[in-house]
């Protein structure tokens, strides 16, 4: 995370990727017995990843990362349960930190949450899709759309914020 905050894109991708596997297990176990459908677990995982991303300046690098991540998970899970009208009591502790196998990943890849992209403007959706799904770099996208690279980055950042808001509104 330190490297990520310093702007190291590859380190950040690795971190998020590992975290997402941990989170999937934590969220599923947290929701066990509450009867939350599988696709919704993935929604919460994505919501948490967005919050980790947009709130990473609230992590104090002199403290361990785990409790900070778990605090975000707890917040998002409680929100999700509240939306479902259940008692917001989510026990989350660090012992929940373990990895899920690859087979889980495969089944979840089949689940597409494309609807959260529908709220973006056409251009922003194009930018997010090109970078996320097609794996293009910001520079490639900038060349293709005739924009500056900085403008693409700004559009990407705004789009991510608005994705996070979409999750928020689903809760309201």
């Amino acid at each position: 995370m330190r490297a990520a905050i310093a702007g190291d894109q590859d380190a950040y991708r690795r971190l998020l990727s590992e975290l997402s596997q941990v989170l999937r297990g934590v969220v599923r176990r947290g929701f066990a017995g509450v009867g939350v459908p599988r696709g919704d677990v993935e929604d919460v995982v994505q919501d948490v990843l967005l919050a980790i991303h947009l709130k990473r300046h609230t992590w104090d690098p002199s403290l361990p990362l785990g409790p900070w991540v778990m605090a975000i998970v707890r917040n998002k899970m409680i929100d999700d349960l509240r939306r479902r009208g259940r008692r917001p009591e989510v026990p989350v502790d660090l012992n929940d930190f373990e990895f899920e196998g690859e087979d889980q990943q495969a089944s979840i890849d089949a689940h597409d949450v494309g609807r959260v992209l529908d709220r973006l403007s056409d251009k922003n959706r194009d930018i997010v899709r090109s970078i996320s799904i097609d794996g293009q770099s910001a520079r490639d996208v900038a060349m293709r759309l005739g924009m500056s690279e900085v403008a693409v980055r700004v559009a990407l950042h705004r789009s991510l914020k608005s994705l996070a808001e979409t999750y928020q509104e689903k809760k309201a």
Binding site: G7, S17, Q46, D109
Partner: peptide, 17 residues
């Protein structure tokens, strides 16, 4: 959006801290 795709987008936005 798949979670791995989302991660691509987040990583591309790494410099926005």
């Amino acid at each position: 959006m798949k979670t791995d795709d989302l991660i691509n987008a987040l990583a591309a936005d790494a410099k926005s801290v």
